[in-house]
Amino acid sequence: MRKWIAITFLLILGFFMLRIAGAFPFGENTWKVARQYVKNVTEEKWWVAEHYVDKGIKENRGSNLVTSIVVNYRGFDTLGEVTVLFLAATALAFLLSSCTCFRKYERIEASLILKTASDTLYPLLILFGAYIFIHGHLTPGGGFQGGTVIASAVMLMLLAHFSFHPNHEVLSVTEGLAGIVFAAIGLAGLIWGRSFLANNILPLGHWNRLFSAGVIPLIYIAIGFKVGSELSGLITDMFKVTKEE
């Protein structure tokens, strides 16, 4: 009974969602479509996305336009996002610290294949994560992705070795320092530049080089450290409920 009510509700919802989506021109240039509906638009007026795309290289000198939007144009939003992640990690640590429930279960020793493979992959994965967040302004990827790759390396080691303990103090100090660096770069922009998180306090450099794009690589490296240590600490907390002290 409950199942059929739910299915009817979902079908009605899906019908209306499909109707709305069907009215949207898929694969068309939406900037041009939007222009037809708005009167009195001269060519000098830039649409937001068009401005990001056309002026992004000139203003930020970062090849990856998604990075220059995430870190520079919408940098304040990213600061909030990092805060959300921090809040989730803190809440999780608080919730799981009271849980002593799974300690009586025996953990099975990991197989030889997993142990050997994770010993080999651990330094390589950390190096790959660092590569991803250092080149965030040139290639696809960035701080969030690189940090997640580093956390996956830590998770692999935790699965393979029962005796692997990441140092929790070091992780939380790294996380705090990276957050402070992000906020300090923003405040430096407020003092010496145009606005909070402004990108005119450092020389922009040449297009498509590693040392370019002003403060964008610095902020993304800080985000990489922050997300990596945060997610590593989160995974360690989740594993801790199975360990006896």
């Binding site: 999780l92 969030f144 989740m238």
Partner: peptide, 13 residues
């Protein structure tokens, strides 16, 4: 990119 990170946090919580 923002939504994926928030999704990870929600799933973990």
């Amino acid at each position: 990119l923002t939504a994926i990170v928030i999704g990870v946090a929600v799933t973990a919580a």
